[in-house]
């Protein structure tokens, strides 16, 4: 029990990472609305970004602009990774939404189950 409490108090960012990612993944799988599925994907990725950023954190660390006598610094590498991954995530969202719009104009629905029925997907 105390282990669990100390996990929540000291590693809350990682707990949040697991929660966000699994909720996002669940939304992607269980929700039939295409736009909500895309939101789920975004949430899943946001969880991963949180993991990267919090892994870079260190107590008392300052921004990694190196000068004499400065430091300690937080690790800049995961932050660069997250910046790049955000760009990738936005492009994915854009493509996903564009495809949803095309599906909507073609079939008049955004529900995946209705689409499966129309298209006859197995």
């Amino acid at each position: 029990m105390t282990d669990f409490v100390s996990l929540l108090t000291t590693r809350h960012a990682y707990v949040l990472f697991v929660l966000l990612s699994t909720i996002g993944l669940y939304m992607l799988i269980a929700n039939e609305n295409l736009v909500k599925k895309i939101i789920g994907v975004n949430m899943f990725q946001t969880g991963i970004f949180l993991f990267f950023v919090s892994s870079a954190y260190r107590v008392g660390g300052s921004a990694p602009i190196v000068e004499d006598g400065g430091g300690p610094y937080v690790s800049p590498l995961p932050q660069v990774i997250v910046l790049t991954a955000i760009v990738v995530g936005i492009s994915l969202t854009a493509v996903g939404l564009a495809l949803s719009i095309r599906l909507y104009s073609e079939y008049g629905t955004l529900r995946a189950d209705a689409l499966r029925e129309v298209i006859g997907d197995e």
Binding site: S21, L25, L28, L34, K37, V41, F44, Q45, I48, F51, A85, L92, V95, G96, L99, S100, R102, L103, E106, Y107, L115, V118, I119, D121
Partner: peptide, 24 residues
């Protein structure tokens, strides 16, 4: 047609999850 868009979107969902798991 819409089938191509549907196939692409399905690929997008699963492909993105695959790449994200790789990122983890």
């Amino acid at each position: 047609g819409g089938e191509a868009a549907y196939g692409a979107l399905k690929y997008l969902f699963l492909g993105t999850v695959g790449a994200s798991l790789y990122l983890i």
